[in-house]
Amino acid sequence: MRLMTLTAILALSAGSALAQNACATGKTLKEGVLTVATGNPAYFPWVLEDDPNSQSGFESAVAYKVAEKMGFKSDQVEWVRTSFDEAIQPGAKNFDVNLQQFSITEDRAKVVDFSAPYYSAAMAVLTTKPVVEGGATPDLASLKTLKWGAQASTTAVPMLQDLIGPDSDPLLYNDNADVVEAMKSNQIDAALFDLPTALYLSAVTLENGALLGQFPADRTQNPDRFGMLMSKDNPLKECVDAALTEITSDGTLDLLEDEWLAQNTGVPVIK
């Protein structure tokens, strides 16, 4: 009994001692460094010019702000690259947090931890001008008749079924470039992406690209919310969450959204 009390007291005092330091102390891979992962390549407008160190692009900017709130200076943030599969595979991770538009889902949360959401993505319909001229309109009846495509590893796949329920089976691809290629060769009419990605693809990669419309984030029961991915039961989670809550409530996150994702307005909402 005495032994237990003693242990409890020791644990308590150790806890209070830690609380005086920054939350993240001793919880990162490398002491005094926050290792952040992004995709390879990382895409506009999440990371500009595929250079996360530049602090340009929404996710890069958010990462540095969160790091700052956790007590890391900008030169204490190191970037690594991972694929989706590397992020979810069992075993040791090579990052503290990973942000590359990972949607938070219940099933994924059984295997990895997610931070509080840092962005709620509207889903948008990417298509081409000939399809729009051919009579496609932003309403469900018209959307159902289109031939659909999507990037296979995204939550766009179940959303496509939930939101639209197309008449023919959608075709699925490895990455955004392949979806665009299939659209160029007229194998699919339209594809579902998160709005910022769809905007980028329609403006830059897809010739004749057009955005038919968007499903606002609150449209579905499970809106697509992006979270920072961490290994399961990572003690760092509470620190990341605290930092995110702080920049959400003081309006920093909204400012960053305005700065990097401002062009999102003006896309018609699908009826």
């Binding site: 989706f84 599969d85 889902t105 099933d107 994924r108 296979a152």
Partner: peptide, 20 residues
């Protein structure tokens, strides 16, 4: 790789959604 959702692709979709 070019679109059809056969068993490998379907498994990939499940892998992404379930992170498993």
């Amino acid at each position: 790789f070019i679109g059809p959702v056969e068993v490998l692709r379907q498994a990939g979709v499940f892998k992404s959604l379930l992170a498993n």
